[in-house]
């Protein structure tokens, strides 16, 4: 029991550190990618290839002046960014980061919590993810912030539906809600994306909308809403909002890699005949390669597509994504019945 708790604590802290580190460096990668797409260099002053840029940004955010509007609801104003950060970090608990490690003949899974409803847990976290933005936007007592918050919540509620409907097709194929089972069924090169390409595309579009990323970044659309829900925020509270967006991006890339790209599985993994520990390590790096690629897709789309209009966004969500997802479920059901 003691070693169990110790092991889980260490694992959870490691995952927390890795998420924060990845989020920190995705800000740099995002700016480098933006530079690449716009044919310029991107940040390169702080350290070699601008490697210390995230540190410089972080220090800058910490030392900026704290500002709180005096009509704001004090408690909720502080609760908003904290809640956003907390909820962004919660999801990583259910993701299997690798196969089991074997130390002294005992198996240690690289997953904090193997709950048998893993997918639903992730949806629960996604569905409460909107609270941080709504509370922050309302508590600022600013019209632009409120408009941003309302946009964010209606957008997230609309796309959540299509997202969960897309996953149902995957669950029907796997017959399990546990993320571990879903990953194990995609052993080798047997990835879900080959069987469920439509579900993957719907999920990807919805993930952009859920993370408030371009082309769906209407909640913080600066040409209409000044800064959106974080207009009144400054210093590290603003930093938390911006940072949580990158954590969300990392986690949704991880969820997509787990559900559709086989998680830690890679082709020809049975031919290697390595020890379980080596396999777990390789699996972990394979998963990270997939996450990095999907993260790059997020940035690629952001710097390629223009922003949607709000009515277009709603029409796409309700009249294209949800019917497509339902059609996908029906077709999957028919195919499973015939087989």
């Amino acid at each position: 029991m003691g070693t169990f708790i110790l092991y889980k604590t260490i694992l959870a802290s490691c995952i927390l550190m890795i998420s924060l580190l990845v989020a920190m460096y995705s800000t740099l990668i995002e700016r480098k990618v933006a530079g690449f797409f716009q044919d310029r260099l991107g940040p390169d002053r702080a350290g070699p290839w601008g490697l210390f840029q995230p540190l410089a940004d972080g220090i800058k955010l910490f030392f900026k002046e704290e500002f709180m509007p005096n009509t704001a609801d004090k408690f909720l104003y502080i609760l908003g960014p904290s809640l956003t950060m907390l909820i962004a970090l919660l999801t990583s608990a259910a993701i299997p980061w690798g196969s089991n490690l074997v130390i002294n003949g005992k198996e240690y899974p690289l997953q904090v919590a193997d709950i048998n409803i893993g997918i639903l847990y992730i949806f629960a976290i996604v569905s409460i993810g909107v609270y941080g933005i709504m509370i922050g936007g309302w508590a600022s007592n600013n019209k632009y912030a409120l408009l941003g918050a309302i946009r964010a919540s209606s957008q997230m509620i609309s796309y959540e539906l299509a997202m969960s409907l897309a996953i149902i097709a995957v669950v029907m194929m796997t017959g399990s809600l546990s993320l571990k089972d879903i990953v194990q069924q995609q052993h080798g090169f047997n990835w879900n994306v080959w069987y469920q390409p439509a579900a993957f595309l719907i999920f990807l579009v919805c993930a952009f909308a859920e993370c408030n990323r371009s082309p769906f970044d209407l909640p913080e659309c600066e040409t209409e809403l000044v800064g959106g829900y974080h207009t009144e925020y400054s210093s590290m509270k603003l930093g938390f909002y911006l940072f949580a967006e990158y954590i969300n991006m990392f986690i949704s890339a991880a969820v997509m890699a787990t559900l559709f790209f086989g998680g830690y599985n890679f082709p020809f993994m049975d031919k290697l005949a390595l020890s379980p520990n080596a396999m777990a390590t390789i699996g972990f790096f394979v998963l990270f390669t997939k996450i990095t690629f999907l993260g790059f897709v997020f940035m690629w789309v952001r710097w390629t597509l223009p922003r949607f209009r709000y009515d277009q966004l709603m029409r796409l969500g309700w009249k294209a994504m949800i019917p497509l997802a339902i059609l996908n479920i029906v077709i999957t059901g028919i195919v499973i019945l015939i087989r």
Binding site: I117, L120, Y121, A124, S127, I128, Y131, M134, S153
Partner: peptide, 25 residues
């Protein structure tokens, strides 16, 4: 666990967000 998660998804995630929405407006 299933009931707990569905409770969070339906009540906290959907219904209460709509409540919050209405009250804000």
């Amino acid at each position: 666990q299933f009931l707990a998660v569905v409770h969070v998804i339906v009540y906290a995630g959907a219904i209460m967000v709509l409540f919050l929405f209405t009250v804000m407006l």
